[in-house]
Amino acid sequence: MAAPRGFAYEELADRSVVIRHHGRKATTLRGGRAARFTAEAAAGDPQLVMARWTGDYRHGNERAARQHPRNAARRR
Score class of each variant (00 low, 15 high):
9 Y>M: 07
51 A>L: 04
52 R>F: 03
74 R>V: 13
48 L>V: 12
27 T>K: 15
40 E>F: 00
25 K>A: 11
11 E>P: 11
12 L>M: 12
38 T>Q: 11
3 A>P: 05
55 G>R: 08
23 G>P: 08
63 R>F: 07
43 A>I: 01
58 R>D: 01
29 L>M: 09
68 H>W: 06
19 I>N: 05
55 G>V: 08
59 H>V: 10
12 L>R: 15
47 Q>R: 08
15 R>W: 04
20 R>E: 01
61 N>D: 11
43 A>P: 01
8 A>L: 11
30 R>H: 08
74 R>D: 08
54 T>A: 03
42 A>W: 00
75 R>M: 08
35 A>H: 06
36 R>V: 01
43 A>S: 13
53 W>Y: 14
56 D>F: 14
60 G>S: 05
68 H>L: 10
10 E>P: 04
46 P>D: 00
66 R>V: 09
42 A>M: 07
69 P>R: 09
18 V>D: 12
14 D>S: 14
15 R>Y: 01
18 V>F: 06
15 R>D: 09
3 A>T: 07
52 R>A: 12
67 Q>A: 13
28 T>V: 15
25 K>E: 10
33 R>L: 12
44 G>P: 00
20 R>L: 11
58 R>M: 03
14 D>E: 10
59 H>T: 13
37 F>Q: 12
15 R>T: 14
35 A>V: 09
21 H>W: 13
52 R>T: 03
20 R>S: 10
20 R>G: 00
73 A>E: 11
58 R>V: 02
22 H>Q: 14
57 Y>N: 09
26 A>R: 09
47 Q>L: 03
74 R>W: 03
37 F>A: 09
67 Q>I: 00
54 T>V: 03
49 V>S: 02
46 P>C: 01
44 G>Q: 10
12 L>F: 03
62 E>S: 05
61 N>Q: 08
27 T>E: 05
62 E>F: 00
55 G>Q: 06
39 A>W: 00
64 A>I: 09
52 R>V: 03
9 Y>I: 11
21 H>S: 13
59 H>N: 11
22 H>K: 15
62 E>R: 06
46 P>L: 04
69 P>D: 04
37 F>S: 10
60 G>H: 00
22 H>A: 15
28 T>P: 03
12 L>C: 11
16 S>P: 03
2 A>D: 10
1 M>W: 05
22 H>I: 08
38 T>K: 14
4 P>I: 06
12 L>G: 03
22 H>T: 09
28 T>C: 05
48 L>F: 01
53 W>F: 12
17 V>F: 02
